Amino acid sequence: MDNSVKTASSNGLAFNPDVAALPPYNAGMNVAIARSISGRNDIARLASNENPDGCSPAVLAALASPDLEPWRYADPACTTLRGALGLKLGVDADRIVIGNGSEEMIAAISRAILVAGASVLTVVPSFGLHEIEPLAQGATVAKVAMTEDLGFDLTALEQVISQGPRVVFLSSPWNPVGPALDRPALERLIAAVRPGTLLVLDEAYFEFADASCPNGLEVLRQSNIPHIVLRTFSKAYGLAGLRVGYAICSDADLARVVTAAKTPFNVNAAAQAAAIAALGDEAWMQASVARLRGERERVAASLDALGFKVASSQTNFLFFDCRGDSATLAAALLQEGIIVKAWRERGYERYLRATIGTAEDNDRLLRALEKAARR
């Protein structure tokens, strides 16, 4: 641990050193702060990978229903939602755990599986909580860097997985970079898993991927390794503000332990009702995803034409080398009323992640980048 980290408060209260040493999670900029800094009200929110189309009208109707009783405790087992997901996914409901966002599932998995000194593998650039939550349990985290062509380093991943880390956190499609593992690549990594390792495949952006990206749940179903697939309603379904994610576990015993590691009543009644309504309107989600995929390809082509090195993306965002310090460019874009996320992991300070927004907001971003490129 860095000796500069404070392990006690000014009044002598001792902190958990594993928690006190945690790096901060970069959650993106609040719109009110962006308005204050830029002096503009018309903010293009392109930092947090939210769905600019909103959510299904069925969700809004469910939230306005008199059947929603905020004064009552929500079902702690999320029985109806787990049943609906089980039917959709073709798995037993007792293998599904619902969380307050898939972030809570990452924390619960870490609490359920990891002990002090255990080893974890993830990739870098990484989704922050794949590192933060294991570190909070006293685990050590190894990270495999992306390749020069902004993809997965399969050889390096295979090598570290074969060493038997207790948990492997792997995003496909990959946040924050964008590409997804194809089926042969995923099967190759699954084959490297040794007894005693849990593979956690984070598919938060699964709905945005095209046919070249396999359904990780289906691939893992044909394996005999312990695994969890993470998915969320925050992205494609547009429920980011309500926080509903879920873990599909390889067996009911694993689901039981992950459930025990979360808090009771963790998913509120409004969130459960919204998620059930969203599942009932798949047509809305699919139409939104189709539009965003088209915008993603258009914006990627435009960035390439401007000379930026853009990672392949199967998500609703683009990750690109901005040819200089990304924080400097992000600050300039903010003055134009555009919020993006400058990546600050060591070695990747030249990279910027931009959400695919409305066509209008995407055009604002491209105009601002063109202007910056001319300077």
Rank of each mutant, 00 (worst) to 15 (best):
A191D: 03
R188Q: 12
Y205N: 09
I190P: 03
S212N: 11
R221S: 14
F208N: 09
T197A: 04
C213R: 12
N215M: 12
P195M: 04
T197L: 00
N215D: 14
L189Q: 07
E218Q: 10
P184M: 09
A211V: 13
A191M: 02
E207L: 09
S223C: 01
A211M: 02
A204K: 12
V200R: 06
D210T: 06
P184T: 05
I190D: 05
A211H: 13
R188G: 04
A211P: 00
P184Y: 01
Y205W: 10
V219D: 08
E207S: 14
F206W: 14
G216L: 08
A209P: 14
A191S: 10
V219P: 13
F208K: 09
A192L: 06
E218Y: 09
G196S: 02
D210E: 07
A192P: 02
L199P: 01
N215Q: 08
T197G: 05
F206V: 15
E187K: 12
D202R: 12
A185G: 03
R194N: 00
F206K: 15
T197I: 00
R188L: 09
F208M: 07
V200L: 08
A185L: 07
F208E: 12
A211L: 05
E207I: 01
L189Y: 04
D202F: 10
L217Y: 10
T197P: 02
R188E: 08
E203H: 10
I190G: 01
E203F: 02
V219M: 13
C213K: 05
E218A: 15
E187H: 02
E187F: 06
R221G: 14
R194K: 12
D210P: 06
S223V: 05
D202C: 14
F208Q: 08
R194Q: 13
A204R: 13
D210Q: 06
L199H: 06
E207P: 07
T197Y: 00
D202A: 15
S223M: 05
F206R: 15
L198A: 09
N215I: 15
S223R: 09
R194T: 09
L217G: 15
Q222S: 15
L199T: 07
L189V: 01
Q222D: 15
S212T: 11
S212Q: 07
Q222F: 03
E207T: 11
R221V: 08
A209E: 07
F208L: 02
S223W: 10
L186G: 03
E218P: 03
G196R: 04
R194A: 11
Q222W: 10
C213L: 05
Q222P: 07
A211S: 09
S223P: 02
S223F: 05
Q222A: 15
L201Q: 08
A192M: 03
A209I: 06
A204D: 15
A209K: 08
L201D: 11
F208T: 08
P195F: 00
Y205Q: 11
P214S: 08
F206M: 13
Q222R: 14
G216D: 01
Y205P: 01
P214I: 04
P184A: 03
L186N: 04
P184I: 10
L201H: 05
F208P: 11
V219W: 04
A191G: 11
A191F: 01
L201Y: 01
A209N: 12
L186F: 04
V219N: 07
R221Y: 13
L198P: 07
T197S: 02
R221T: 12
V219Y: 10
I190N: 12
A204Q: 12
C213D: 01
